[in-house]
Structures are given as C-alpha cells and as structure tokens.
Design a protein around this nucleic acid. Structure first.
Lengths: 256, 256
DNA sequence: TCTCTACTGTGAGCAGTGCTCACATAACAG
DNA sequence: CTGTTATGTGAGCACTGCTCACAGTAGAGA
C-alpha cells in the first residue's frame, strides 16, 4: 500500500474512532467526518452480511445515495476501506474481551481465562465474517498495515494481563530452561512485556493463544463438521472443556 | 451449490486424481480429461502466485489459449474450480504429512508428532495461498461441499494414527472422567475412530490439532509480527519448541 | 456408409466490479 | 470579492463471471 493511502488511514482513524472529532472545525470538515463515518458503517453492514470478498465500493456508494466515484474522495481504494474495517473488527473484539475480563474477580485467574476465551468465541460466532477477516486469511495483501497493529494487540494484551497477575500473585509455574534459539526468537515480544513475565511463561501464553484461535477457527470454518455435534449447547460444552484444559496446562488452575 | 455442480465435482475428481483415467475410452473422453486436468493445473499455478481472491477463469482460459466461455464446458463456475483446488490442496498436504509420518520409527510417538507438525508447517510455508484456502477463511460459501471432506481428513487421520498406536503400546494416559455433555458432543467423531481411543484422548488430540493449526496460522497470517523474530531459523526453533510442548501435554513424551 | 444427436469451441453480449479523469459547483481563505 | 481548494458528477476503461445463439465435429445407431 502506498504512502498516501497509509497516511489516509491514519487520518480516517481520528474521524472514525473519536466519533465526532474536533468540533472546533469548519462545516466542510464536519461533513467530511460524518460521511467517512457513514461509509465505514455501511461497509461494516455489507461485510457482516456478505463477507469481505463481496464488499464493493460501488454498492456502498449506492446505499449512501452517492455516485460511485464520490466515495473515492473519502476512501482511496477498496483495500483502504477493508483496512478500516479490520481495525474496526479488532476494536470490537478487543472491547468485548476487555469487558469480559474486567467482569471477573481479578484473582480468579482460570475464571478470567475462560471468560476471555468464551468472549472471543462469542464475538466470533456473532461476527463470523469479521472474525474471518482478522483471524482468517488476510485479504488485502500479506503485510497488515501498521495502523492495524495497535488495535490487534488489545486481545493479546488482556491475556498478558492474566499472565502478569499470575506472576504477581506468585502462582506462576517455575520457568523451564529454554534452548538459546528459542529464547532469542522471543526478543521482540519480551520488549513489550513487563520483565516479571518469563520467556517460558510467554511461550505458554502464546501456545494458549494459538489453541484458542485454532479451536475457534476449526469450529467457525467448518472443520468440526462430522467431528463435534452441531448443537450449540454441545459445541459450547466442548469449547469450555477444551479451554479449561488449556487453563490447566498454562498453570492457571490446578490439575483437577 | 447446486446439485448439477456437485455431481460435476464428483466426476471431475475421477479425471483429476486418477491421472490418466479409464484408458478404455473414446478420444473425446480422453481429450476432455486432459483439458480438465490442464485447467486445474493452471488454476493451481494462479492460486499459488496470486491467491484465491485473484483467481479468474478468464485468465486461466487465456493461459490455455482458449476463449473464456470454453472453460465453462469443463468447469461449471469459478467456485467449482476453487472446490477442485481445495481438494487438491488437501491431498497435497495430506500426502506430505503421511510421508513425514511414515518416515519415522512407528514406536517413536513424539518424533512422529513433531514430524507431522513440521510437515504441515513446511507445506504451509511453501504453499501459503493453498494453506489460506483450506485452513483460513473459507471463500466459496460457508458449507464446504461434501467432496472436500474425504481429502480433508487425511491429515487428521495421520494424527489419529499416532493416538491409536499410543493406546496400542499402552502409553496412553489414564482417561479422565468427562462431563456428560462433553462426551455427547464427540459422538460424530467417536463413530469414525477405533474404540480403543477414549473420548478424553480424542479431546487431547483435537486440542493438539487446534494448537498446531492455530500456531501455523498465527505465523502465516502475520500475527507473530513484532512477537517472534522473523528469522526463519528462529521461527523454526520457536515452532519446534511449541510442538514439543504439545507432544508432552498430549502424553506422547515424558515431562522433561 | 449415412444420418442424427450430443458434445465442443466461438464470439458477442449483459451486468457487475475497481478506478480515473475532465468538468461543474460549492465552500472556504485571503 | 476573488482565487484556491474541496466535493460531487457522469462518462469511460479494463477487467470480471456467466449466458447464449451459432457453427462445426466426433460418435452412435440405422
């Protein structure tokens, strides 16, 4: 994606997420912010209904009663709109997970983990196309633009919060010795995390995160067809059980 | 997908995977089989280069020097070609994994698991767009056509083989007691599996499968950016470590 | 061997897409 | 009030999936 498009996304974010942006602005600027917001909103509706592959700028324009070329005044191209929707989706799931975590007793570590896991799954089931957009195959090119990385970290940050509290409460398992290369591989992550969290704990956390997303993706993308009963209650029981086991393996809960 | 299209896929499979199909056929039938094979082959090349989203029947037709409407004599629509490519991809990764497993000593359970995991990851890195097509967001509708389910089970079957051998060698962990609903949820799977494998072991296996795919998806879809060093050797070390841990949690290897 | 049917290839065409551009018009800044 | 800048318009290009009337051609049966 070009520089111009990137700087657009940065600008649009102010508009979209501050809601009603700097009120001390000209009528033109307010109109621009409003219309940009509408475009993203309609885009999200289309995404939710038909999926990313079917998202069309022309259809969005029609819904808004404007000619198709007019939306290019607000969004440089289709991929840029998708990028905004990706950011939107990350924030949506991020908010849900943060809320679920906050609703638990801080000291109830396995309860928090299970609440987080359920919350991700619940959000995914409610927003399957959005989930596919952010955790399935990336559609606009391979490198996610930098703008998405911030919102993308919200859910992992909540998980890391659990790990941090586990250490603080003295309930973290004894860190294992790790091969040099494995330690080295984690360098970027360790820079962004309180150094109370050991590399070993980080690895356990990443594994849990992988299991969490892997299990949800298996379910959502149809790979549990003919494997796990389709009945929602049974699916939920299955998921809860698997996540409870993950919590145990992570060291959050004692072996039963 | 319509009945007609489904029956097409079934027919095309004979053509594509028997290689040179029933030689006791008319020249016309042989030509048809050959051209169908070429279409799938060119389609796979396009998929590998540009990804599923960019796959175009017209471009495939151009590459084959035929007019675009002619390919519709062989493939009813774009989704049907994608379905063939999905089956192709499942068979490709399936063959790779079966080979990797067979190359290990049968009794070396953790070695087999690690070989399987590495083989899936290796294949995924070599064929990122194919991986995205089968394990990322499903693109042609939500319900994968029945034709894909057979090839899709090849990799899981290899994993189940390890579980079966684990039981046969008396190295399976003592099955845990499970909640009634969790047991019930597994009914479909348990029908397809030797009854030496307990529900509990099946759950552990599914968890490992989720972790395996989840970890690879995290890496391939860019979610380890700024988390795990990009250097391929370090990425490999990270993955191997994680999978070794999974093997331990699965009960394949002793706690070190 | 001839005829009729069923298959294969052709090119035009329809409706839709992303995106660009010349142009008009409106809003703002000086 | 004037000149610049932002916004909306409609035509147009190149592309897509897919259909269809038409022209050949291969194969099966008489």
């Amino acid at each position: 994606m070009s520089r111009a498009v990137l700087s657009f996304v940065a600008a649009a974010l102010l508009v979209v997420h501050d809601g009603h942006v700097s009120t001390a602005s000209t009528a033109r600027e307010r109109a621009r912010a409003e219309i940009t917001r509408e475009i993203v909103e309609v885009g999200r509706a289309h995404l939710a209904r038909e999926g990313a592959a079917a998202l069309s700028l022309r259809a969005v324009a029609r819904d808004l009663g404007m000619v198709s070329s007019a939306v290019y005044r607000y969004v440089p191209n289709r991929d840029a709109l998708l990028t905004l929707l990706i950011i939107d989706a990350y924030n949506s799931v991020g908010a849900a997970v943060e809320g679920a975590d906050a609703a638990q007793r801080r000291s109830d570590l396995p309860g928090r983990f299970l609440a987080i896991a359920r919350s991700v799954r619940g959000w995914a089931i409610e927003h399957p196309h959005e989930y596919a957009l952010i955790y399935g195959s990336p559609v606009p090119g391979y490198a996610a633009p930098e703008d998405t990385t911030g919102p993308a970290t919200r859910v992992p940050m909540v998980l890391i919060g659990v790990l941090v509290d586990m250490v603080a409460d003295g309930r973290a398992p004894q860190p294992r010795r790790l091969p040099r290369k494995v330690r080295a591989s984690l360098a970027p992550m360790m820079q962004a995390v309180p150094d109370t969290v050991s590399e070993d704990l980080m690895l356990r956390g990443l594994s849990s995160w992988g299991t969490l997303l892997g299990t949800i993706s298996l379910e959502l993308f149809g790979h549990l067809h003919n494997v796990v009963e389709e009945d929602p209650a049974l699916r939920a029981a299955f998921f809860d059980h698997q996540m409870t086991r993950v919590a145990v393996d992570l060291g959050l809960a004692p072996e039963d």
